[in-house]
Simulated assay, not measured.
Amino acid sequence: MSNPLRIALVAGEASGDLLGAHLIAALKAKLPGAIFYGIGGPRMEGQGMTCWWPMGELSVMGYWDALKNYRRIAGIRRQLKKRLKSERPDIFIGIDAPDFNLGLEASMKAAGVPTVHYVSPSIWAWRGGRIHSIGRAVNRVLALFPLEPPLYQKEGIPVTYVGHPLADSIPLTTDRLAVCEKLGLPKTVPMFALLPGSRRGELETMADTFIQTARLIRERYQPQAQFVVPLATRETRLQFEAAMYRQQAADIPFRLLFGHAQDAVGAAHVALIASGTASLEAALIKRPMVITYKIAKFSYWLMKRMAYLPYVGLPNVLCGRFVVPEILQDAATPENLAEALNQLYVDKENSAAIEAAFTDLHLQLRQNTAEKAAQAVLECLR
């Protein structure tokens, strides 16, 4: 009787946890009895993966946060590398988190373990020279976006375009009124979704600004407006409630949700979103949005110097143009954000054009991702 296959995975963010969970489910269907272990989040654990460290140990935001936590994260990587070498897996899959995973992948590959990197680092946006170290570290890259495979093919690096799982799970059309009914929200008032981020560092930076923006919308533009705010964890909900108290916001009609980010966006006419995977979710739900972000000044300066593209939000990157506004860093004042959100709300012709662009994007990304990714992993195992 052959031993079960051992598959090691490492994910460092909520988006990676989602990708990993879908991949594990697809692999389990093809490889009954396979054992999964490494670093992941609650979704991956829910699929039966044994997590040696919680995924949150790897979550950092920007260069300054990474520098502050470098010793702790480097210690985890040393321990993980040692354990992987002693409990040698049949394949190693790094999910995103390239600064953490690529070094591990290179070490595993040198030890004769096939390696897969799931989610191409954003070499199309900045630090394009990384493609050579990626090629040395991995046997195959699984790319989520159609602009990525040609970059790897040009360098002779094996790559598979798998699309994005959100495009598979989110329907092509979302009925706003039906979602409002599901959430018990009024259907006839201006509805704005506010997504200030899923991590504590993002809430520290963005929560007060989002609340001040909501107040300006009510006072200056849309007095009947209401605001739905999905928060990923108990900690981030408490952070947002603390910001509401600081801002004396008891008079602003916020509806706070535990999770349900897609429902929040689906119920809204317009969304304000801290840049990240949530902006892609909003694009797939076909909602106009303002993308905003604030990070440490040094991190922002460094990223601006190294960037190749004029946009940072995934919807704009993937469409190759500014489909929706980005208001970042010092420009992300409540006044600027409120004005941009109101303009999106009132301009119905622009909203229809945004919906058409995002429908085209949705169709490009809908590729049955988990199945394609699992098939690529099987090819590497062979």
Rank of each mutant, 00 (worst) to 15 (best):
I134T: 08
V159K: 08
I134D: 06
I134G: 10
E105K: 06
W124T: 04
A97H: 00
H132P: 00
P149F: 09
V141E: 02
Y152V: 13
L172P: 11
I131R: 07
K82R: 12
N139D: 09
C180R: 15
L166N: 09
L84H: 01
Y152Q: 12
A125D: 02
N139C: 03
P146F: 09
T115P: 09
I93W: 02
L177Q: 14
S120Y: 07
L177S: 14
I131K: 01
T115M: 07
R130D: 02
S122D: 01
G163V: 09
G112M: 10
A111L: 08
R127F: 03
V159H: 01
D168C: 13
E148G: 10
K154M: 14
P150V: 15
K82D: 10
K154D: 15
I93V: 05
Y152A: 12
T173W: 13
E105G: 04
L84Y: 02
R176Q: 15
P158V: 06
F92D: 00
F100M: 00
K154Q: 15
Y161M: 11
H132D: 03
S133Q: 13
R83F: 11
T174V: 15
G156P: 09
A110G: 12
K81G: 07
F145S: 02
P114R: 08
P121W: 01
W124G: 07
A97R: 01
R88Y: 09
H117E: 06
L147I: 10
S120A: 15
Q153D: 11
R127T: 03
R130Q: 03
E105D: 08
T174Y: 13
E148D: 13
R88G: 02
P149C: 12
A106Y: 12
I131E: 09
V119W: 02
P146S: 08
P171L: 14
G112F: 12
R140F: 05
S86R: 15
V141G: 05
D90I: 05
D168E: 14
Y152W: 11
K109E: 06
Y161P: 08
R140A: 04
E87F: 12
D168K: 11
K85F: 09
I170Y: 13
L102S: 00
S122A: 02
I91N: 01
I123P: 10
V179K: 14
K85N: 08
